[in-house]
Design a protein around this nucleic acid. Structure first.
Length: 218
DNA sequence: CACCAGGGTGGTT
DNA sequence: AACCACCATGGT
């Protein structure tokens, strides 16, 4: 059993407060959550800036925008054809739900189901939107948290996402701390908890040679 | 040149 | 349920 309360305080001490998305509008955060899939935040932020420059970061504008224009704005964020279609579907959905106001009237569980019904919104994106756009308590299970949990437990098999979600939710239950926790896990994953190269001769990390991480790599 | 970056979908076994 | 190929650009 991982002691996530200690993990949280340790990450906070190591990396400091992250304060993700404190200033953006909820719909911009939703769009950002889609755009950042399998790419860097830098690329996603550039795409968001270009969309905003064209006035497309509002549901009513984005849903009516030419697909080619959306593609042009977000091209640098990867999977641009796929993401452009999904962004427009997201915009239509939000607009038809009465905007962020209307959508926010739903209970958290119901809202999560609504989001999961959207094309391109899976568990991680749905929980990120719940947490960062709607300030609802949600555990974001991403590749960084999976890797971190695996190295902490040194288990042969990684815990299932559902179990991981339960563990975290058992210790951190309010949205503000869950917000900060996810941001800290990402910061830690970038700085310390790096993926290990699969090269047989890799001498860089203990984890690569022995299958067990050194304390500095966790 | 190979690999990675704050996933998700659709198809196959 | 567990795999797989695919989507695609930008950085190292």
């Amino acid at each position: 059993m991982i002691q996530f309360s200690k993990v949280y305080s340790g990450l906070l001490a190591a990396h400091g407060p992250q304060r993700w998305w404190p200033a953006d509008e909820p719909f911009e955060i939703m769009a950002g959550a889609l755009l950042v899939q399998r790419t860097t935040w830098q690329s996603a932020a550039t795409a968001l800036d270009r969309l905003k420059q064209k006035g497309l970061l509002r549901p009513q504008r984005l849903r009516r925008a030419r697909l080619g224009l959306v593609e042009q704005c977000i091209k640098g964020a990867g999977f641009f054809q796929t993401k452009a279609v999904r962004l427009k579907k997201l915009a239509r959905f939000v607009d038809e739900c009465g905007g962020i106001e209307g959508l926010g009237a739903s209970e958290t569980t119901a809202l999560r189901e609504l989001l999961l019904g959207l094309e391109g919104v899976g568990p991680e994106t749905a929980d990120a939107i719940l947490l960062y756009a709607f300030a609802r308590p949600a555990v974001v299970v991403d590749a960084y948290l999976r890797r971190l949990s695996q190295r902490l437990t040194a288990a042969a098999k990684a815990p299932a996402d559902s179990r991981l979600r339960t563990w975290v939710a058992g210790v951190i239950s309010d949205a503000e701390h869950l917000n900060e926790f996810h941001a800290l896990v990402v910061a830690h994953g970038k700085a310390v908890c790096r993926p290990v190269p699969r090269c047989p001769e890799c001498r860089i990390s203990r984890l690569c040679r022995t299958g067990r991480a050194a304390s500095s790599e966790i």
